[in-house]
Design a protein around this nucleic acid. Sequence first.
DNA 1: CAAATATACATAAGAATCTTAGGTAAACAA
DNA 2: TTGTTTACCTAAGATTCTTATGTATATTTG
Lengths: 119, 119
Amino acid sequence: MYICPMYTSELIKGTLKTIILNLLKNRDKMYGYEITQTVKEMTNGKIKITEGALYPTLHSLEKKGDIGFEKEYIGKRVRKYYSLTEQGQNTAQEKVNEFADFIETMKYLLDIDIKPSNA
Amino acid sequence: MYICPMYTSELIKGTLKTIILNLLKNRDKMYGYEITQTVKEMTNGKIKITEGALYPTLHSLEKKGDIGFEKEYIGKRVRKYYSLTEQGQNTAQEKVNEFADFIETMKYLLDIDIKPSNA
DNA sequence: CAAATATACATAAGAATCTTAGGTAAACAA
DNA sequence: TTGTTTACCTAAGATTCTTATGTATATTTG
């Protein structure tokens, strides 16, 4: 049985906010646990967001005004559904643009030739 | 006059070792200050490696056996020329491969369509 | 030639971001 | 009913960076 290797935590460091904001941009509203599961599934387990990293980041994004939330009860259990504020929409776009640019720079710096994406 | 914006330090975090090891793979031997200047030039100032980050990283890579150095005197001033060990050659390749894979994963996750590199 | 800038190394305090470990509690599967 | 999954949370510690500082030589500029 093949176990998909995770990336070293160094690499993922710094991309968490970008990932969260972009997911919320595409999906309108999500709750924390859903974010961790979605990222795990979309990356085949290569990126696993730990809860110890996720929740403080969500609280930080909320404090800065990029996201807001509303509680929803599933039986007696609570979910906090987060969504982008207007400011957050801009932040999300900026973050993604910056990362896309960063990728190009790093590709050049590391002399990586990227296989054309399955278009 | 247009000032090229630097990336937020979050993004660069975690890629420093990869950048250093890859440069040494392509250039055989380099000294610390040369690395900072080369990266700054190659990225048009978008990535600036600070000395406070560089030197501890070089020392760490040396302690782990990925790089070695020999001193060279330019007049009375010393340069420490670093180069990859055999182990470092492997580490360098692994780091670059991992980063290339990481880029692909992030492109998918962030739904970024990359313009074909100026080929 | 003096002063400022560039070269070249280094360390240390603090900030930011993560991992690891722990806690609470409800829902569901075995 | 016992374990796993869902769903939230915090805190200690590790890692990796920034910022500030130190030392010293070489070069450029006024």
